[in-house]
């Protein structure tokens, strides 16, 4: 097994709001090996984006990391001062965002923005420009020489996302975090970008952390997956295992809630109720009000994370308890 590049353990993020503190991330632990693709999947407000931002220590105010460790290549990022942290951002770990339309600065040419990123490593401008063109070629931007001289508004959404990705990989980061990289794009462009991310990861031996709500994206590109619900990781594991034998009722229902065929074949399983509000979580397991298989204990005690085997964890009373082994 490859060495662990990133190890997050017991991450806690809290937002201080006018109505009291809200725990947006509750004891999240996961790791990513060198060259591995981990996907964090979940619905809106499950804390997946906040988790991603925590790794770069970019959680916006009034949010604050209140506990846990984020160890990147042997260094706990939470112990670093702000100045040393900047050495990691962009250089070791970089991040692409959901909306490429606003992630680029509209008043600078796209090539210049990539060049600037390269120049952060004290590369002279002419060499940085060549590097920028090279990177734009790698992200398969059509006519990179011309496009580099275009302003972001002159590029289409797909091209902008490519420039964005180019900018983020221009300094050869070892971990790329992609927060909903395809959500804002048209479907045929989504396929292109997913393809590109997959290629880049093989070419560059980059580790990839993908944040998404789309189980299709997870199935397509991830090696391992973590399912988040209400700020906690409820299930992690190898992607085939999780998709084939999901252990947590939430994962099971989520997979059954996706339409996969014509209506007369099978009716969609729907999860009753809505995503819970983080400032007002139910006691016990946060999923229990929507869970059809809940036990008495579920509304009283929040389950612990249980490791089934290395890399496979689940957080549910149904698993590990007597009822589970009897089945």
């Amino acid at each position: 097994m490859a060495a662990k590049l990133l190890e997050v353990s017991g991450l806690e993020v809290q937002f201080d709001t006018s109505s009291g503190p809200v725990r947006a991330v509750r004891g999240v632990s996961f790791d990513i090996a060198e060259g591995e693709v981990l996907a964090l999947v979940g619905e809106s407000g499950c804390g997946k984006s906040t988790t991603a931002l925590s790794i770069l220590r970019l959680v916006p105010r009034p949010g604050e990391i209140t506990g846990g460790r984020i160890v990147f290549d042997g260094v706990n990022l939470l112990d670093l001062d702000e100045c040393s942290m900047t050495q990691y951002r962009g250089k070791q770990i970089s991040m692409i965002f959901q909306n490429p339309l606003v992630a680029l600065n509209p008043v600078y040419r796209s090539g210049f923005q990539v060049q600037e990123a390269v120049m952060l490593d004290k590369v002279p401008p002419d060499r940085a420009w060549r590097a920028a063109l090279n990177v734009l070629k790698q992200v398969r931007l059509p006519d990179p020489e011309d496009r580099a001289r275009s302003y972001p508004h002159e590029l289409s959404g797909g091209m902008r996302q490519r420039v964005m990705i180019g900018m983020m990989i221009s300094r050869f980061p070892r971990l790329l975090i992609a927060d909903e990289p395809t959500t804002a794009l048209d479907v045929t462009i989504q396929a292109q970008i997913l393809d590109l991310l997959d290629d880049l990861r093989h070419e560059k031996r980059m580790s990839l952390l993908i944040i998404t709500h789309d189980l299709g994206v997870v199935a397509d590109i991830a090696d391992r997956v973590g399912v988040m619900y209400a700020g906690a990781l409820v299930e992690t594991g190898d992607v085939t295992e999780v998709f084939e034998k999901p252990l947590h009722p939430y994962t099971q229902l989520l997979l059954k809630a996706l339409p996969r065929g014509p209506k007369n074949e099978l009716r969609l399983e729907s999860i009753p109720g809505g995503v819970p509000n983080l400032s007002n979580l139910p006691p016990g397991c946060p999923f229990h009000p929507r869970c059809q298989r809940r036990l008495d204990i579920c509304s009283k005690v929040e389950p612990e994370t249980l490791e089934i085997h290395p890399g496979r964890t689940v957080r549910c009373h149904l698993v590990g308890g007597e009822s589970f082994w009897k089945r």
Binding site: E43, H213, A257, I271, G274, V275
Partner: peptide, 14 residues
Amino acid sequence: LDVSVQAQVLNLLL
């Protein structure tokens, strides 16, 4: 909508 809610709405429409 979220996936879990999408399924509810699709079923409702049917």
